[in-house]
C-alpha cells in the first residue's frame, strides 16, 4: 500500500472503528474476538479492489456486513473450512442498524429472564451479567459448585427455548 492509500485507510479506520467494534462486540461478547474481527474486517475490506467505488456514507454498513460474515465464519468453522467473506453481497447490502431493534432485543432478553425461577435467574445474573466465577457464585448462593453449573445449564436451556419462541412470535 502506498503512502496515500495508507493515509486513506487510517482516516477511514479512525472514523469508523468505534461503532464497528461495538457492533462486533455485541455479536461475540468478548474483547479478544471483537478486536481480532474488527482488525480483520479492515484488512479484508480495504484490500477489496472495488472498495473505493462504495460511497463514503456506506463504509460503516459495508464493514458491518463483512464483519458479520467473519463472525458467522468463526461460528461454523468446525463444520466447514474456508472463509466466505462475500464482498459483492456486502457491497450491495444496504446495512442499516435500527436502534428500535436493539431496544427490542434488550427487552426481549429481560422479559425472558423474568420467566426463569428465582434461583435460575440469580445464577444467570451472577455468572453472566455480573461475571462471577462458579466458586464465587456457589459461595454467594450457598450451593456447591457442581450445583451452580447444573443450575446455569438448565437456566440457559430454558432461556434458549423462551428466546426462540419469542422470536418466532415476533416474526409472525
Amino acid at each position: 500500500m502506498n503512502e496515500e492509500g495508507l493515509k486513506f485507510a487510517a482516516e477511514v479506520c479512525r472514523q469508523t472503528w468505534e461503532p464497528l467494534y461495538r457492533y462486533v462486540y455485541h455479536k461475540v461478547q468478548n474483547r479478544e474476538e471483537a478486536e481480532d474481527i474488527t482488525q480483520e474486517t479492515y484488512i479484508r475490506s480495504l484490500a477489496y479492489p472495488k472498495f473505493r467505488e462504495i460511497g463514503r456514507a456506506e463504509y460503516l454498513a459495508f464493514f458491518k456486513a463483512v464483519a458479520a460474515n467473519l463472525v458467522k465464519d468463526r461460528w461454523r468453522r468446525n463444520k466447514k473450512r474456508g472463509i466466505q467473506v462475500g464482498f459483492d453481497a456486502a457491497a450491495n447490502l444496504a446495512f442499516t442498524e435500527d436502534p428500535a431493534e436493539a431496544v427490542g432485543e434488550r427487552m426481549l432478553v429481560e422479559q425472558a429472564l423474568k420467566t426463569l425461577s428465582a434461583e435460575q435467574r440469580k445464577v444467570v445474573e451472577l455468572r453472566i451479567i455480573r461475571g462471577y466465577s462458579v466458586s464465587e457464585t456457589a459461595r454467594m448462593m450457598g450451593l456447591k459448585a457442581g450445583h451452580v453449573r447444573v443450575l446455569q445449564y438448565r437456566a440457559l436451556k430454558n432461556l434458549a427455548v423462551i428466546l426462540s419462541k419469542e422470536e418466532t412470535s415476533h416474526e409472525e
Binding site: C13, E105, R106
Partner: peptide, 21 residues
C-alpha cells in the same frame, strides 16, 4: 451471548486504532 449483551461492551485500549492502522 444474548444475556451478556445486557452489559455494556468492554472497549479496547486507547491504542487500538493505532494498532489497527
Amino acid at each position: 451471548r444474548r444475556v451478556k449483551s445486557l452489559k455494556p461492551p468492554v472497549m479496547p485500549g486507547a491504542d487500538f486504532p493505532d494498532k489497527v492502522v
